[in-house]
């Protein structure tokens, strides 16, 4: 899995209400529709600024707050290819993997707004093309790579009839 795109940078403690405000969550199961409101309280019109493949860059504790899966789904359906952050809140992290949104822990201090990045998940390499630098990545546990490769947890279950982490 390799992605190319530019960086959209946010700060620390980006919570799930920022990612997709609670007031929209009951309205629809149509994630494409929800995606139009992604990050809008932090960056009005964010959805329109994303080109398919772009990255959301966070600081520490990205995705803190609610357990609602609409948060990673709204990001995924906004055509963001991956979220890179110094650390993630645990429920968001699980949900991202389970729904097939790649999440990468790395030193995002080396990435600025608008930097062009190439992220190779399998190789565990982030290349900051704008800065001509590579950023080391904390590799995902094998369990999570397996779920991501299968296209999320539901697809993993369909394939194996249960957990298969061998």
């Amino acid at each position: 899995m390799q992605f190319n795109g530019k960086a959209h940078k946010f700060g620390n403690d980006v919570n799930t209400d920022y990612i997709i405000s609670g007031k929209y969550k009951f309205k629809t199961l149509d994630m494409k529709e929800l995606a139009k409101h992604v990050m809008e309280d932090l960056d009005p019109g964010f959805y329109g600024k994303v080109t398919a493949g772009d990255f959301i860059i966070g600081g520490t504790n990205f995705g803190c707050g609610s357990s609602r899966e609409q948060a990673p789904l709204a990001i995924k359906y906004a055509d963001v290819s991956a979220v890179l952050a110094k650390s993630f809140a645990r429920i968001f992290y699980r949900n991202a993997i389970n729904t097939g949104l790649p999440v990468v822990e790395c030193d995002t201090g080396q990435i600025d707004q608008g930097d062009e990045l190439t992220v190779n998940l399998a190789a565990g390499i982030i290349e900051n093309k704008t800065k001509g630098a590579t950023i080391p990545v904390k590799p995902l546990p094998a369990v999570m790579i397996k779920i991501l490769n299968d296209g999320g947890l539901a697809a993993h279950f369909r394939e194996y009839g249960g957990f298969n982490f061998d």
């Binding site: 707050g65 990673p72 429920i91 699980r94 949900n95 389970n98």
Partner: peptide, 25 residues
């Protein structure tokens, strides 16, 4: 599938919030 599922730890249970796909599984 609610982040405040951790409430039941008050009873001496292990209780944690997950997302909808985890709930489905």
């Amino acid at each position: 599938a609610d982040s405040h599922t951790c409430t039941y730890g008050a009873l001496g249970a292990f209780s944690t919030g997950v997302g909808s796909t985890d709930l489905a599984a």
